[in-house]
Design a protein around this nucleic acid. Structure first.
Lengths: 126, 126
DNA sequence: ATAGGAAGTACATAAAAAGATACTATTGGA
DNA sequence: TCCAATAGTATCTTTTTATGTACTTCCTAT
């Protein structure tokens, strides 16, 4: 384990997928393949072009996605996962599964608690 | 895949581990076991008590960690992963591995580029 | 009586991330 | 000539996260 946050490898990996938009961008590119700028914009109706550009550039800088410009008018720019970027897939997949289970877990937990079942371990109390 | 960010399961999972301090808190509790508030404070010298409290409470609310109060003076409060919280371990582990590989990947990439090797695929150009 | 240790809380502030809105270049077609 | 389409930039403002510094409570040991 690295104590220095600058070098904590979990944080390095986290950096690829955190932010309000990166998870969705990655999921779309992973699951649906190549997308143009305007397609991503349509898939994420609330993102501003500025934010979309920023996130795409960050991912590109980390070699996770690839940006391909076609010299046409009007311009066409396509984004896709790099082969290297696809190594993130198992992690995203695992998080997806965990997240799904977690929603269930918390639902079950709240149900139990509102049923008025007292906690027998006496761990509560602030 | 869930398009609604409120329900995107990747985001649900991400929520457990994002933030400036959560990864380190989780790694310490996972790898070194139970810790008192003051021990965590010592392990993370730059965290403020307020931030430490906030992060611990969030993790507790999600059933990832457990808070045990001993009615002593001076007070003793111990934090530890719950059994459920340990299901995050494979994800953290995978991210740790990926992060390590990524640092290598980027180092190799920059080395290649500063060697002046031209990109043969013509994908550059902003 | 007073100081000390543990585990916090309270309130004000700064830094980082995200959003709103408007603007640009290019050029094929009406 | 002027409009439309695509892929963005440029500024400014707001929201969200994280900091800084001080204060509190409880009992125990000096």
């Amino acid at each position: 384990m690295q104590k220095n946050p600058e070098q904590c490898q979990v944080v390095v990996a986290l950096d690829m997928i955190v932010g309000k938009w990166k998870p969705m961008i990655l999921l779309y590119l992973m699951n649906e393949g190549t997308k143009r700028f305007s397609e991503l914009k349509r898939l994420l109706p609330d993102i501003t072009p500025r934010m979309l550009t920023l996130q795409l550039r960050e991912l590109e800088a980390h070699d996770i996605i690839e940006r391909k410009v076609y010299p046409e008018v009007p311009p066409r720019v396509e984004y896709s996962m790099t082969e290297y970027g696809r190594t993130l897939e198992p992690i995203l997949e695992a998080m997806h599964e965990w997240g799904k289970a977690h929603l269930e877990h918390m639902k079950a937990k709240h149900a139990r608690q509102s049923e008025g079942v007292a906690d027998p371990s006496g761990k509560s109390g602030r």
